Simulated scan of single mutants.
Amino acid sequence: MGGCLRLGLLALLHLGSGYAGYFEQIKGKMGEKVGLPCCHELSSSESLQSYRIYWQKSTTEVVLAYVPEQGITTDERYENRTVLDTRNFTLWISPVEILDNGSYQCIVQVLSLARVLCEKHVAFFVTADFSTPNVTAEVVASSCESAEVMLTCSSHGGFPKPKVCGALDSKPVVWNASQVAKSSLSLYNVTAQLWLSLTQDASFTCSLEYNGFVTSTSLLLKKANDCVVLPKPPPYHVIAASSIVIVVFLLALALAARYLSRHGFLSCVFCTAVPAVRCTAMPLALTLWRSERGRWKVESSAEEGCQETPV
């Protein structure tokens, strides 16, 4: 496509007045087939040879042009990827590339009137889907009360530049660090990091927003509970009351033991039974004699003896 055609195209924008201007937004994804609409459609009685049609990008780059004397010509970057609808002048692009993103203009000129019939501006937003976010959690330090966790969310291969959002239990968080890099194919790779002090189980969600599209991933964070928690000591007043009860009980036990020992009721369970000794007088002899008054008397003599008797 020569420079003369480009200069001639720019000059057409200033020929005459009274043409209608339109603006429209079109969205498409990389690799798809997308049509960019123009501003005029031929009737059954009209002929294509009565018009000149120009498609240009950002007012400086010619995409496609139709001139009756030359036919349809296409810029080399769009060759084999663009088709002009000769009825409504729609520009079809397939497959769509990231570099196709931008502002386009369709200009229709009537040859017999030597003026611009209409012009339409089209904002073409190209989108490339990001990969599903990959969320990882690394425990840096932990204690019985909390765990220090570094969360990383990454995604790649998308367009345009996304907005990376994070939420902990549905509450937005602010990233500690984020990095967006652009590849040689104009696609974006994203990495974001968040430092988190985790005290209980929680749900974390990382999402990417771009051109009206959203992709997200959620991760359940579990607080490790592998610490041995020692029971709390009882309050001071409980210890004091318990001590008083124990002291009173010991004093009562001591008094009871003393009372029982004095009255002979205390016995030792673990002691050997001591046999009781019972002493009795044992008769040894009987003597029969007569007193002075002439009476007979029987007299016995005995000696004391002792024998063991079990109690």
Rank of each mutant, 00 (worst) to 15 (best):
residue 4 C to N: 14
residue 5 L to M: 09
residue 6 R to N: 04
residue 26 I to W: 03
residue 31 G to S: 02
residue 32 E to S: 04
residue 36 L to S: 04
residue 37 P to S: 01
residue 37 P to D: 00
residue 47 S to L: 09
residue 51 Y to N: 03
residue 53 I to C: 00
residue 53 I to K: 00
residue 56 Q to L: 08
residue 62 V to N: 00
residue 66 Y to F: 04
residue 78 Y to S: 02
residue 82 T to H: 02
residue 92 W to G: 06
residue 99 L to V: 08
residue 99 L to F: 14
residue 99 L to N: 12
residue 100 D to T: 04
residue 103 S to W: 08
residue 115 R to A: 02
residue 116 V to I: 08
residue 120 K to Y: 01
residue 127 T to M: 08
residue 127 T to W: 00
residue 132 T to F: 06
residue 134 N to M: 08
residue 138 E to W: 11
residue 139 V to P: 09
residue 141 A to Y: 06
residue 146 S to I: 09
residue 153 C to T: 01
residue 165 C to K: 13
residue 169 D to A: 10
residue 170 S to M: 10
residue 172 P to Q: 01
residue 178 S to Y: 07
residue 180 V to K: 07
residue 184 S to I: 14
residue 186 S to D: 15
residue 206 C to H: 05
residue 207 S to V: 00
residue 220 L to Y: 12
residue 228 V to G: 07
residue 233 P to W: 10
residue 235 P to Q: 14
residue 235 P to I: 10
residue 235 P to D: 14
residue 237 H to E: 15
residue 240 A to M: 12
residue 241 A to Q: 11
residue 243 S to D: 15
residue 249 F to Y: 07
residue 249 F to H: 05
residue 251 L to A: 10
residue 255 L to W: 12
residue 256 A to D: 09
residue 257 A to N: 13
residue 266 L to F: 13
residue 267 S to D: 11
residue 271 C to L: 07
residue 273 A to T: 13
residue 277 V to H: 14
residue 286 L to S: 13
residue 298 V to Q: 13
residue 306 C to K: 03
